[in-house]
């Protein structure tokens, strides 16, 4: 398996947010994670790239342990920092650096972290901006752009680090309805190119279209984790059918 996640637990002091989440993905798989708010979807995503340290559990990417070593000890911060860039992450609120224009946003990490030369970083960034349709806006500052444009730029910024896995944390939840489509199109394009992705989303139709698998979480547990077809066709679980009924 390309990405293996086993028995992730997360406590916030007394609060047990994740109660043993396990899943695994092949290269090129797209896993959509759905579920009601507060079910731990976002926390789970953050535990995969150790943006939040899970309390317990293992994450393996390409057979290499992430965050915890084989004996279950937390690795040092520098190593985790290096491992984290194998995962690209896109946030609900975009989190573009507002004091930099789009181009600067995208070349920042390749230059500082990957030590690429500025010329190469810029040419790669321009290619990515072209891909997400923002080449003309490259000298604009994030706050001058629409939510959809900002989110597409955020995706380009994540891709500039050449991640092996992309994590999307509710990428369209903060967007106006009319700009959701343009962002979903970019994500769909990525899925078609064979990027391994985990997408936390409330867009069930979108999940149905792009995912190879769909996982539903509730109260820190997996309700169901099935291939897309069987997930939407089976009526085995009352919580799941209720959720899908409400959100369709």
């Amino acid at each position: 398996m390309f990405l293996e996640i086993d028995n992730i637990h997360k406590y916030y002091s007394q609060l047990h947010v994740l109660k043993g989440i396990s899943t695994s993905l092949n290269k090129g798989d797209v896993l959509s994670i759905i579920g009601p708010s507060g079910s731990g979807k976002s926390t789970f995503l953050k535990c995969i790239n150790f943006l939040e340290y899970p309390s317990k559990g293992t994450v393996m990417l390409n057979g290499e342990p992430i965050g915890f070593d084989y004996s279950g000890k937390l690795m040092n911060e520098k190593v985790i920092c290096q491992q984290r860039r194998k995962f690209g992450m896109v946030f609900q609120n975009f989190n573009l650096f507002w004091h930099m224009n789009l181009l600067e946003n995208i070349i920042e990490a390749p230059i500082r972290v990957l030590k690429k030369s500025k010329i190469i970083a810029i040419s790669e960034a321009e290619e990515l901006l072209n891909k997400v349709g923002l080449y003309e806006k490259r000298y604009n500052f994030p706050k001058k752009l629409s939510g959809g444009q900002q989110q597409r730029a955020a995706i380009a910024r994540a891709l500039a680090m050449k991640p092996e896995v992309m994590l999307f944390d509710e990428p369209t939840s903060a967007l106006d309805p009319e700009t959701i489509g343009e962002v979903l199109k970019v994500i769909e394009q990525l899925a078609n190119e064979g990027m391994t992705m985990l997408v936390v989303t409330h867009e069930l139709n979108f999940a149905k279209n792009i995912s190879t698998r769909v996982m539903m979480m509730d109260e820190g547990l997996i309700v169901d984790d099935l291939s897309t077809d069987s997930f939407f066709n089976s009526q085995d679980n009352i919580r799941k059918t209720n959720f899908i009924g409400q959100n369709h």
Partner: peptide, 14 residues
């Protein structure tokens, strides 16, 4: 905002 810090962490910045 914490989000700005999260974003730079995710990009592998120290």
């Amino acid at each position: 905002e914490q989000g700005q810090v999260d974003a730079s962490k995710v990009l592998g910045m120290t």
